[in-house]
Structure formats: structure tokens, C-alpha cells
């Protein structure tokens, strides 16, 4: 793979997250009862950052849960490589709560579909919002995000790499050619 472009720098990610945090609070009319659920791997630090930002703006810190969608993938009977199951830890009752599902990249929509199925198996949230840092298009399912950091038109031959300090040691979004 070849690096084609650096799409977002650390400061732009920070600004996008701040805007999303404001939008979440505005749309939800406050942060009471609100909880965030980050999808493995990079959805988790994004959810933590959004929770901290919301706390800074509203004085209320939304709880953060961790969701692994591996057991909900729609291709487990067809794939040749076994995906590793990771931790799901949602230390609060999601029933009747407004939830924000958080992921780094929205692409085909299949991860979001799996995440929604996993969440409704865990309880009955009052509603589920969907926040992503990057929407790169090419949906294969009727899924859209409520909050988007940046819309980035890409081709299917390209790979969008989100790097976050907590996981990768630096913040940035890169475009790679397959």
C-alpha cells in the first residue's frame, strides 16, 4: 500500500470532535442520561474524547461503553481468516437511554448494522444516534450517520486510515492506495 495523502491533522480532528460534541448535546437537548458506545478499536478512544468534551461543555460526563461486533458480523460463515473476538463491556443499562454509537470510519455500513443488532440484543435504548469521524461513502446498506467529522470522497481502491494517539501514538487521517 502507498500513502496518497494526509487528509486530517490532529488539530482538525480535535475541532471536528468539538463540533460533534456540541451537535450531540444540541440534538439530544442536553447530556442527561446520555451514554456513548465506542466500536472496537478506534471508536473507543473517540467515544472517550467525546465524553470528556461533553463534560467540559455541559458539566455532565456521559458513561462510555465498549462494543465488539465480531459475533454479529454477517460474513462469519464465508470468511477464510478467523477474526479475534474482543471485549464488550457496557457497564450501564442501555434501556431507555439515548445512546451515541461511535466509530472512526463509516464505509459500507456493515459494522454499523452489526453494532445496532448487538445493541438491541443488550436492551432497548430510547434512541440510538450514530457519530463517525470520517464518512467515506460507498454504502452497501441503508445506514447514515447523525454526526460526521468529515465527509471524504474516496474510491474503493483506497484505504482510509484513522490514527489516534491512544492506539497509534499520533492523531491523523491518511488516504492510502491499495
Amino acid at each position: 500500500m502507498k500513502l496518497k495523502a494526509r487528509l486530517l491533522e490532529a488539530a482538525e480532528i480535535e475541532r471536528a470532535l468539538r463540533r460533534i460534541a456540541h451537535e450531540i448535546v444540541e440534538k439530544n437537548k442536553g447530556a442527561e442520561e446520555l451514554a456513548l458506545v465506542g466500536v472496537h478499536t478506534r471508536g473507543i478512544p473517540l467515544a472517550e474524547r467525546l465524553s470528556s468534551l461533553i463534560e467540559r461543555f455541559e458539566g455532565v460526563r456521559p458513561a462510555v461503553g465498549v462494543l465488539d461486533i465480531t459475533l454479529y458480523r454477517d460474513d462469519l460463515s464465508e470468511i477464510a481468516v478467523q477474526p479475534k473476538v474482543r471485549e464488550t463491556r457496557i457497564p450501564f443499562d442501555i434501556t431507555n437511554k439515548p445512546l451515541v454509537l461511535v466509530d472512526d470510519v463509516l464505509y459500507t455500513g456493515r459494522t454499523a448494522r452489526a453494532a445496532l443488532d448487538a445493541l438491541v440484543d443488550l436492551g432497548r435504548p430510547q434512541r440510538i444516534y450514530f457519530a463517525v469521524l470520517v464518512d467515506r461513502g460507498h454504502r452497501e446498506l441503508p445506514i447514515r450517520a447523525d454526526f460526521v467529522g468529515k465527509n471524504l470522497p474516496t474510491s474503493r481502491q483506497e484505504v482510509v486510515k484513522v490514527k489516534l494517539n491512544e492506539v497509534d501514538g499520533e492523531d491523523g487521517v491518511e488516504l492510502w492506495q491499495r
Binding site: 459475533l71 454479529y72 462469519l76 460463515s77 473476538v85 471485549e87 464488550t88 440484543d121 443488550l122
Partner: peptide, 23 residues
């Protein structure tokens, strides 16, 4: 380690996941 993560499924109110649907 996978078994440890499966035990989390068994602690849920609805103890079922679709992983082996079709098998």
C-alpha cells in the same frame, strides 16, 4: 481468552449471539 469473552455473553439478559447462524 475467547471463552472469557463468551462468558460476558452468558451474563447478558439475552444470552445469545448470531455468530454461528447457518451452521
Amino acid at each position: 481468552e475467547t471463552a472469557r469473552l463468551m462468558e460476558e455473553v452468558l451474563e447478558r439478559p439475552m444470552k445469545k449471539v448470531p455468530a454461528l447462524k447457518g451452521f
